[in-house]
Design a protein around this nucleic acid. Sequence first.
DNA 1: AGGTTGATGTCAGTGCCTGACATCAACCAC
DNA 2: GTGGTTGATGTCAGGCACTGACATCAACCT
Lengths: 193, 193
Amino acid sequence: MVRWEPGATDRLRVAALELYVQQGYEQTTVGEIAKSVGLTERTFFRHFADKREVLFDGEDLLQHAFVAAVAAAPPGSAPLEVVAAALASTAQHLEERRPWSRKRNQVIAANQPLKERELLKLASLTAAIAEAFRQRGVPDPAAALAAETCVTVFAVAFGQWIADGETRSLATVERDILAEFKQLMTALETAEP
Amino acid sequence: MVRWEPGATDRLRVAALELYVQQGYEQTTVGEIAKSVGLTERTFFRHFADKREVLFDGEDLLQHAFVAAVAAAPPGSAPLEVVAAALASTAQHLEERRPWSRKRNQVIAANQPLKERELLKLASLTAAIAEAFRQRGVPDPAAALAAETCVTVFAVAFGQWIADGETRSLATVERDILAEFKQLMTALETAEP
DNA sequence: AGGTTGATGTCAGTGCCTGACATCAACCAC
DNA sequence: GTGGTTGATGTCAGGCACTGACATCAACCT
């Protein structure tokens, strides 16, 4: 006989997103989320540090993938080549979850506290990638700038990837954004009007 | 006869930073800040949206300066030239406040909720600059990338500017970081070991 | 059989933040 | 000047996020 239903963490994740979508983040109380899956508010806080973290605690997987990709690039590669390779190899982690990403992103975009948490996660990602570059022997500030470039391209591309009507793969959008970025950093004149 | 001491907002700002420095952000209650300048907790929340905002509500000045600088650049300038000009013209807003910036930054760096708010402010700055580029006729995603570049250089340079032992001006550090960024985006090989 | 583990429940409490209403000096209109 | 208005502040009640301390009890181990 099971004393508790298994997978409490996952059930809380699913229920939270659903309630945030249906009735809004602010209007949803933690007790409500917990009760909807047969748990108490106190137990929610044993699974997640706070009310926001329930939407973000899977991000370390993506972070590990980026760090591993940067570490795995062939020695002697230019930082920008490493960035391109890391973007290409991590895109698959999200490719199959576009509908879920859209749903989640809509909730985050509508609530300032959630935006703040997302930005913190991106900053953490940037810091981890910068450290991976330093491990490759790239000195600061180049390591920091390479990491910022990587996350900027990822974030801009991700925003386009989940836009209405966008059908290209994340990897493709990332490639195009990175190309445009390179061009921007070398162009001396704007396109004539 | 004055019913209230004037400058309540400023007094709260000063008292808050002082208390955050002396006894830590978490250990300081809003009631404590307010009481230390002869006001009540309720009044604090009439001047600032929340406990964090008291450290950040001056940032719109910087944002306006960046937007104005982008708008004021000569027509036909390459986006990167505009970025360089905006960085140069806004640096003066901080040049004279390095000790204060160091003090404030130490508090922010030590507390996750404050880091989150700072990142949100930087994201807001990025969005405003991107909009200013669009007003110049720069299309997306170039406008977004130019804005990200501007804020990235500013943030990296600012971090170096307040580092221990750093004596160069903010404008100088920004120029150097931007130059390194350009080089990174065009270099094909890492420097030989 | 008995002890341990670990996820959960219960309860009390703190601090952030808000809405509603009261106060009262300064200011303005006539 | 009398009287009404304004606006910054105080007071009070309350909701919700989050935490520490302690209890519970099936599963598991010895």
